[in-house]
Amino acid sequence: MQKVLVTGAAGFVGGWVAESFDLAGIPVRAGVRRWSSASRLVRRKLEVAPCDVTSVPQLRAAMADCDAVIHCAVGNEEVTVRGTENVLAVAHEMRLERIVHLSSVAVYGEPTGIVPEDHPRNGSSSAYALHKISAENICEKYMQLGAPVVILRPTIVYGPFGYTWTVSFAHRLFSGKWGTFGKHGDGTCNLVYVTDVVQAAARALTSDRAVGATFNINGGDIVTWNEYFRRFNAALGQPPLKEQAIWPIAAKSRLMAPIRAAGRFGLSHCKDWLMSLNAKSALAAQYMRATESSLKVTPTAGQLRLFGRKVDYPNYHAKELLGYQPLVGVSQGVQTAAAWVRQKHLLF
C-alpha cells in the first residue's frame, strides 16, 4: 500500500496538495490538527486523520501505511520548529521513502537581486523567517543522517483558498482605499500559483535527484506589485486603481503598527474576553470593527518594503533537477483567484 501523508492539510497549500492528489487519484491522507479545521477537505471523500505535529503518537498513527510525507504544517514556534523535528524524527524512524518539507523564501530575509538557493539565510526580518530557518536546520540534520529529505522554498503563493496574498488583497482592492504605489510598488512580485507548488511537491516525491536538495519554487511570469494590484483589481471588476502617495501610507502604517501588535496579542491571549466585550458593548464593538477595517487596508511596514524590493528567486535548479515547469501564468492565476473570490462572496 502506498500513500502520502500531508501535514497541515487544513491550510492553504496543504489543502491544495491533499485535494489535487486526491483528484489525480494519488492515495493521500490529509493530516489536520483539529477536526473543526477540516471543513474544506471533507467536501471530498478523502481520508482525513488527526495529525497534530506536536504530538509524536499522533504522527506515528498518521504515518502508518504511508510511504512519504509532504510537511506543510506551519504555525507558532512550537508547530513550525518542534513540529518539524517531530515529523522528521517519526518519518526517519518509520523509514519513509521521501520527506518533502515546505519552507519559504522568507528564509533569505529581505534580499535584493538574484537569490539562488545557496544565498545566505537571514532570520532577522521576522519570527516566521527565523522559525523556518530553524525548521530547515532540522531537515539538514536529518539529511546528514541519511533521511530522504527535500526542501522546497515557494515564493508568494496565491490562488483560491489563499488568505494572505489573495483574500486580503481582494478586501483591500474592494475597499477603494488601495492603489498603486509608483516606484515604491515597482518591486518584484514573485507570484507562484498554488497548484504549481503542488506540482513541485509531486516532482520532489518522485525525483531521485531531489533528495538532499533545496529548491526555490517560483512562478513563470515575473510582474511588479503594482502590476499584480492592477490585474487582480481588473479581474475583480473594480474601477481602475489610482496611484497613491507613499508617505501618508507609510505614516499610517507606522501608526497602526502598535495597534496591530496589540490586536494580535489580544486575539492570541484573551480572545474570549474580547468577544464578550464586543457582544456587550456597542461602543467597543464599533471601535473594534473600525480598527479591523482600518488594519485590513493598511499595509505593514514589512509589506511596504516588499512592494518596492527588486528580487528574483530563480527556478533553474528546480527546472533542472525536478523538471519543474510552472503551468499557470499570472493572467490565468489572477482570473481564477478573482472568480473564486466573487463566487464565495468575499468581496465586502
Binding site: 485535494e19 489535487s20 492528489f21 483528484l23 489525480a24 487519484g25 494519488i26 490562488g159 483560491p160 497548484t195 504549481d196 503542488v198 506540482q199 509531486a202 518522485t206 503551468l327 499557470v328 481564477t336 472568480a339 473564486w340
Partner: peptide, 17 residues
C-alpha cells in the same frame, strides 16, 4: 474552474497513472 480547468491536476493524473 479552479479544479476543472487547472492544468496541474491532469498533469498529476498523467504522471502518476
Amino acid at each position: 474552474p479552479w479544479y476543472s480547468s487547472d492544468p496541474n491536476i491532469p498533469w498529476l493524473r498523467q504522471q502518476f497513472s
